[in-house]
């Protein structure tokens, strides 16, 4: 298969990649670049553990091909903290204990950042509705909603 060369800016780092066009953005991040914060829970857009920000929008990295994002800016969970200073949502997730096993947590946090940017965190009901693409099998939902509300309220 012919490889296609693309450039991605991931967490502020430029990566030039020669990829099989069938490679998903998720596999490019995990298998090629080596950033494993975005998880593969289902590989078919049903669980949300792979959620990342592409040019500020939340997307399922498993449902989009890497070559479709030449020149794009990608943010994964590894790119959220500023040195040892956590992103407010990361701190809120700790304070509210909005995680158990933690496998869905990177996707939940990035989805929540997207949600806040969309202006869709104005009520608990709205948060629940627009976070429903991110499953949490441990059932941390009420604490995740509380963490998002804390940050939304502070903004």
């Amino acid at each position: 298969m012919t490889r296609t060369e693309i450039t991605l800016s991931v967490n502020g780092c430029q990566h030039t990649l020669a990829l099989d066009p069938r490679v998903t953005l998720l596999d490019a991040l995990r298998e090629v670049i080596g950033l494993t914060g975005a998880k593969k829970g289902c590989d078919r857009g049903e669980c949300g553990t792979c959620t990342v920000l592409v040019d500020g929008r939340r997307v399922y990295a498993c449902l989009t091909l890497a070559v479709m994002h030449d020149g794009a800016t990608v943010t994964t969970v590894e790119g959220l903290a500023d040195g040892t200073d956590l992103h407010p949502l990361q701190q809120a997730f700790i304070s509210r204990d909005a995680l158990q096993c933690g496998f869905c947590t990177p996707g939940q946090i990035l989805s929540a950042i997207g949600l806040l940017a969309e202006g869709r965190a104005t009520s608990e009901q709205e948060i629940r509705e627009f976070m429903s693409g991110n499953l949490c099998r441990c059932g941390a939902y009420p604490n995740i909603v509380a963490a998002i509300r804390d940050v939304a309220g502070a903004q």
């Binding site: 914060g37 997730f93 700790i94 946090i109």
Partner: peptide, 21 residues
């Protein structure tokens, strides 16, 4: 007390089996 492993989980540094290289 806050969960001892929470920081590694919210920063993506917790290395699960699927992440082992």
């Amino acid at each position: 007390v806050d969960r001892a492993d929470a920081r590694s989980k919210v920063t993506g540094t917790a290395c699960y089996t699927v992440d082992v290289v």
